[in-house]
C-alpha cells in the first residue's frame, strides 16, 4: 500500500500509529465492477443519511469512492452549482437564487426527497405545565421583538417563572425551517436566545434548566427521551406529539419537514452516480430509521426511483 509518506520528511516519525494501520487492504478498482467517484456535500442534518448510504454502497461496490462533506445546505449548493459536487444534501428546498446560480453554470438540479424530520420543541422533564402549545403561542414566543419573557406571558395560569430559550444558530437549515413554519417568515426570530450549532449543547442546556424551552431535530430528541420532554403542537386540530407515525403521516404539522438530495442531471449520466442514487432510494426505507429519521411512506421511494430521468 502506498499510503504512508516518504521517510525523511523532517520530524514526522510517527511510527506508533502508522505501523498499526500499515496493514489491511485499501479499496482499489474491483474487476469488472463500477469505478470512479461520487461526491456529496451540503446539510449536516442530512449528512447521517448520506453517510450511511455511502458506507453501505462502498461495501457493495468497492471500486467506487464516495465522499460526503458538511458545508451546510447553502454552502453545499454553492459547490453543487459550481459543478464541484455531484449530489447536494439539503434540509430545505433550493432557493431561486441558487437555481439561478446553477443555471448560469449550465447545471440542472433534480430534487429528490429522501426522508422526514420532525422539528421537536422540548422542555425540561420538571416542566409539568407546557405539555402542549399552539402554533400561535410559539409564534408569540419566537417572533422578532417578542415581549414574552416569562412562562405566564404565554398562557394565563402558567407559572410566573422566567422563560429561557434555546435554539440552533442562524446558519442552520433547522432555524430557517422553524422560523418559516412558526413565525411565518424565514429567518425572522427574536435574537435573545442561547444559540448553538451543536444540538447536543442545546440538549444539555434544556436538560439542566426547568425554565427552558428549545427546539431541534427529532433524532436528538429521540436519543435523549429520558432527559427531555417534547411539547405537543396544536395546529388548530388538537395536540399532536412528534412520533415517527405522526411525522410520516404529516399529522405533526407544521414542523414535519422533508429532507432532500439534489442531483446534478449531467452527473447522473455517469454510471457510478446513477448506481449510487438508485442504491440510495432502494435502501432508504431500511437505513433512514436507523440514523434517527423517518422514511417516506407509501411506496414513495419506488415512485421516485421510477421517476428518475432515463439513462442514455
Amino acid at each position: 500500500m502506498r499510503t504512508t509518506f516518504k521517510a525523511g520528511t523532517v520530524g514526522l516519525a510517527i511510527p506508533l500509529v502508522a505501523g498499526a494501520i500499515a496493514c489491511g487492504g485499501g479499496g482499489g478498482v474491483s474487476e469488472g465492477g463500477l469505478g470512479g467517484m461520487v461526491t456529496l456535500d451540503g446539510s449536516s442534518t442530512v449528512f447521517p443519511i448520506s453517510e450511511a448510504m455511502a458506507e453501505e454502497f462502498q461495501i457493495a461496490n468497492p471500486g467506487v469512492r464516495v465522499t460526503v462533506g458538511i458545508s451546510g445546505t447553502g454552502g453545499g449548493f454553492k459547490k453543487f452549482c459550481g459543478g464541484e459536487t455531484d449530489i447536494s444534501d439539503a434540509s430545505r428546498p433550493i432557493k431561486d437564487s441558487e437555481r439561478e446560480l446553477c443555471a448560469e453554470n449550465g447545471i440542472v438540479p433534480i430534487e429528490v426527497p429522501v426522508a422526514w424530520d420532525g422539528l421537536t420543541v422540548v422542555i425540561n422533564p420538571e416542566n409539568d405545565w407546557a405539555a402542549c402549545m399552539t402554533v400561535d403561542e410559539l409564534k408569540r414566543v419566537w417572533q422578532p421583538g417578542s415581549t414574552v419573557s416569562r412562562w405566564s406571558d404565554v398562557r394565563d395560569g402558567w407559572p410566573d417563572m422566567e422563560m429561557k430559550l434555546y435554539g440552533p444558530g442562524t446558519d442552520s437549515g433547522t432555524f430557517d425551517y422553524f422560523t418559516d413554519a412558526i413565525v411565518g417568515e424565514e429567518d425572522a426570530s427574536r435574537p435573545d436566545y442561547t444559540a448553538s450549532e451543536d444540538d447536543n449543547v442545546l440538549v444539555v442546556g434544556v436538560e439542566g434548566d426547568q425554565e427552558a424551552l428549545g427546539y431541534f431535530g427529532f433524532a436528538y430528541y429521540e436519543e435523549n427521551q429520558e432527559r427531555l420532554n417534547s411539547v405537543a403542537i396544536d395546529n388548530g386540530l388538537g395536540c399532536v406529539s412528534p412520533t415517527r407515525e405522526t411525522i410520516e403521516s404529516g399529522e405533526y404539522a407544521p414542523l414535519s419537514r422533508p429532507m432532500f438530495i439534489y442531483l446534478n442531471s449531467s452527473a447522473l449520466a455517469r454510471p457510478e452516480v446513477r448506481a449510487f442514487v438508485e442504491f440510495y432510494l432502494t435502501n432508504s426505507s431500511a437505513l433512514v430509521p436507523e440514523v434517527g429519521y423517518v422514511p417516506l411512506g407509501g411506496g414513495r421511494y419506488d415512485e421516485l426511483l421510477a421517476g428518475l430521468p432515463a439513462a442514455d
Binding site: 453517510e51 469512492r65 464516495v66 460526503v68 458538511i70
Partner: peptide, 19 residues
Amino acid sequence: IMIGALTFIAFPPTSPLDP
C-alpha cells in the same frame, strides 16, 4: 473545513491530489 475537507470518506489518500 473551509477549504472543503470531507467528513465521511472511506478510502485513504494515495496521492496529494486526493480528497
